[in-house]
Simulated assay, not measured.
Amino acid sequence: MRRVPWWIPALVLLATVAQLAVAQWVPGIERFEGKAFGARLVAYPLLMLLAPAVWWVWARRRQADAAPYGAFTLVMLPFLVDVTGNSLDLYDAVVWWDDLNHLVNWFLLCAGLGLLLCRSVRPSWAVVVLVTGLGAALAIGWELGEWFTFIRHGTEADAAYEDTLGDEALGTLGALGAGFLVARSVSRGAAGPRRA
């Protein structure tokens, strides 16, 4: 992956936190009501910074390459996309937005995680399986979080089962696409420049 400067993931984090702050503290914006933006204001930045924090701890123990800011950006982008979708009221205004969101966000998240985790995984099919499995597990975890936060005592319980299955399937499909992309990237990196 082409080198990405440090300020790109920082900008993604800042844009996400700014929108979360507006959602939490600016009164009277109906589209933000009942969507747990107080919890998101804490959880999203922590989740966005988890991969960079783990990488920095790991890099300090080893002589690692330059920081993978591109991978960090990919991991952070789904949170920005989710919050921006709420800010622009896309979840209510565009009927297919939630489905597209699950597919694309899991692709981005799993591509970033795959680039961080799979540099030395061989063969390529193992990379695809690992990234897809990780994405499926994360999709299940996300849906459990949504159920706990929004559905169990909310008004969406009637359609929750079908929506949850669809979201998990789309998340896993996005992870599969990311798995193929990461496998291709890893195999190109492993080949490296040929010596004469």
Rank of each mutant, 00 (worst) to 15 (best):
A137H: 14
A136F: 11
L115V: 01
F107L: 10
L130N: 02
V75F: 04
W97S: 04
L80A: 06
L130I: 05
L115F: 01
F150E: 01
R122N: 03
R119A: 13
A93I: 02
F72V: 07
H102E: 03
P78E: 05
V75W: 05
L144A: 15
G114R: 14
Y69L: 05
L80K: 05
W142Q: 13
A71M: 08
L138V: 08
A137V: 15
F148G: 13
W142T: 07
D98K: 01
E146K: 07
V131I: 03
G141P: 04
A136H: 01
V94N: 01
A126L: 15
L80I: 04
F107A: 13
G141H: 09
S124N: 14
V81N: 02
Y69I: 09
A137C: 09
N105P: 00
V83M: 10
L100I: 03
L115P: 00
L130K: 05
D65Y: 05
D92A: 10
F148T: 15
G114V: 06
V131W: 03
W106R: 07
M76Q: 12
A67W: 11
Y69S: 05
V83Q: 06
V129S: 15
F72Y: 11
G114Y: 08
A137L: 15
D98F: 02
T149H: 06
L77E: 01
A126M: 14
C118S: 07
G135P: 04
L138S: 14
L113M: 12
G133D: 00
L115D: 00
W106H: 07
D98S: 03
V104A: 12
T132Y: 12
V81C: 02
V131P: 02
G114K: 09
A67N: 03
